[in-house]
Design a protein around this nucleic acid. Structure first.
Lengths: 357, 357
DNA sequence: TTAGTTAGTGCAATCGATTGCGATGGCCAG
DNA sequence: CTGGCCATCGCAATCGATTGCACTAACTAA
């Protein structure tokens, strides 16, 4: 009988149910050594403390018994849980699943797992969830809900909680972050529209309580100036949330107060989707009457009517880098906090065209 | 100074940094009792074993010290981790985020957390991930990757692992599951098309290795017969995966071999999306030339060109019920396994219309 | 020969909470 | 006055792995 899948065998093996999984002591006994030695033999970092032949014996015994170290016991002793917390607004926002997968990918290969919580943008809830995460002994936090003014995060930082921010940052806090290069993304979008011949471009800005919101709208204003376009403050309207609904509201406001514009760069794809809704209601056709560009390139944008031009952000990489960073800072707590700005790219589809004559 | 947020206070409190969080023994000492008593005083189930006054003292001490029980130590002793594993194919599939949120909602209120893993439909990976989940001492598993023939699940069942299946089931295994009512969903779709006047309806079936796939295609055949429509085997083509790509492939196959059909009911929304791709390539217009109905009502289907008619499944509820079920079976291991069939509804949009004259 | 290394291993404490069992003292019935 | 019951509470073992320290040989250097 083969021994390479012991944990499966024991299931079908009638004579030795061995309900309890093998413990380190069982292995030690089987190998004829003390648990201490077994522990060291199994631990790569301590392996050189024990005789090579002994190591072999122990490893073989471990394999035969299908030994799996109990991570809970280990955690208790070492006070490392091999777990990190991931705090996002809402998993249901298509922006996040790819990020989560990126994070889990690198966590997985390091033997870590993520505990995911959704705050629904409720600070109360966020506080409670983070509290519960901490009580579960997470070793660090990846946070996607950062606000420009975020007392909770400041507090956590003071308490030496390891944190990396993702997708959003906090400007005056020295806290590592991984974000897309929003400014050049917006720059690309405006330039593209300008090249098409647009001169009055509107911006449906995201909430100015988030770095993403302010960076993008600042970049928009700069791009407008750099491209010599019309700088009318009325062309900028802010959304309170990164949502389709708020996007629609902003678009309606723009239309209702009669601000002329032949193109709009939306704070993100959801906001752009809101524009689509308004267009449908009011018989405006895109891109003939007005061009739209989104931000993020969330899935299925190419199936829209019309397929949405947007700026693509490497979500998977964003997540992966954030996880790598957190892991690093867990390994070397003293390391100076790095931050990353990942490159973005304009993805041309059919929602942008030359302005109406 | 208020005492209701001790863990925050201690951060800013210069004189007593108390780096280490308070332990049960600290609380006991502060209350002038033994740790045993403190433990019982804090545990609702054991509280009646200790004097009411003592309970008060202990609780006060706990509060003052900002005591948070260490779940790891607790887990070690009780071998309960308050954690369950969630096994899905790919979080990036829009079907899953709402399910996950439903699950986490009920888990959260029970003090449980979920560890999410993505198998990418790779059995090897699935096995390894479940192994790792188990080594993390999860108390149960919610599995969305069930195949009709799934030896691993059978094994787990024999090893008394608590499992509830979600979205898919295994017919001959007595394992609790929560699924949408696929059969009546398909029935609704076919009936709707029949009422519109279609007589040759195609079915782009999902993989017949999954219960969802076979149930839906079986229901399709029955519905066709019940509505007195044409029963041409050529009208049914199977997709190897629940993907846009495979959906497109199936649609192309149907077209290429010249099978006439004025409507197609897709195994799910992704497959329907694949049809859209082919339509775009071949200048077929939907719904004028051919009607399409999907399944699941994943997000943003209403923004498609044309908005997709589909059958809506209560994803959030699906997740919530599955979690409830798992929790129940953890609490009362002997309870007879229940299963749930949640009601679905046809969601009419613009991808279905009367057949061309 | 003797002191001093060094490699290899074991002892026992420890992480923080839980729990079976036993001890204590008060109180009541007989 | 004595035995017994009950309400309270503490002792100590336990969960499974890790690790500082000590111990034993065997070996080296002087």
């Amino acid at each position: 009988m083969s021994l390479d899948r012991p944990s499966e065998l024991q299931a079908g093996d009638a004579r030795a149910p061995r309900q309890q999984p093998a413990t380190l002591r069982d292995v030690a006994e089987a190998a004829g050594v003390h648990a201490t030695t077994a522990s060291r033999a199994l631990n790569p970092k301590a392996q050189q403390l024990v005789n090579a032949e002994t190591v072999r014996r122990v490893r073989r015994a471990a394999e035969e018994l299908g030994y799996q170290p109990n991570p809970i016991a280990r955690s208790l002793k070492t006070s490392k849980s091999s777990t990190v917390g991931l705090v996002i607004p809402d998993l249901t926002n298509p922006l996040f699943p790819p990020i989560v997968r990126g994070i889990e990918n690198v966590l997985e290969s390091a033997g870590y797992s993520a505990l995911i919580v959704n705050t629904d943008n409720d600070p109360q809830r966020e506080r409670a969830l983070i509290e519960s995460l901490r009580s579960r002994q997470v070793e660090g936090l990846i946070i996607a809900t950062a606000l420009l003014d975020h007392p909770l995060l400041q507090q956590l930082q003071q308490q030496d909680v390891k944190i990396v921010l993702i997708n959003r940052r906090i400007e005056n806090l020295r806290m590592p972050f991984v974000v897309g290069d929003d400014a050049t993304g917006i720059g690309l979008a405006v330039k593209h529209l300008a090249a098409l011949g647009h001169t009055r471009i509107a911006h449906l800005a995201g909430p100015q309580t988030t770095s993403t919101g302010v960076v993008r709208s600042r970049a928009f204003r700069h791009a407008v100036r750099d491209n010599g376009l019309e700088e009318d403050p009325a062309l900028i309207v802010e959304c309170a949330h990164w949502s389709e609904e708020d996007g629609a509201g902003a678009m309606r406001e723009l239309l209702d107060r009669g601000t002329r514009a032949t193109a709009v760069v939306a704070g993100n794809d959801l906001i752009a989707l809101g524009c689509y809704d308004v267009f449908a209601d009011r018989d405006i056709s895109c891109p003939e009457d007005v061009s739209v560009v989104g931000f993020n390139d969330m899935p299925f944008l190419d199936k829209l009517r019309p397929p949405l031009t947007t700026v693509g952000v490497p979500h998977h990489e964003l997540g992966a880098e954030a996880a790598r960073m957190l892991l690093d800072s867990i390994d070397e707590p003293e390391r100076y906090p790095r931050s990353l700005l990942l490159p973005v790219s304009l993805i041309l589809r059919d929602s942008t065209a030359a302005p109406p004559a």
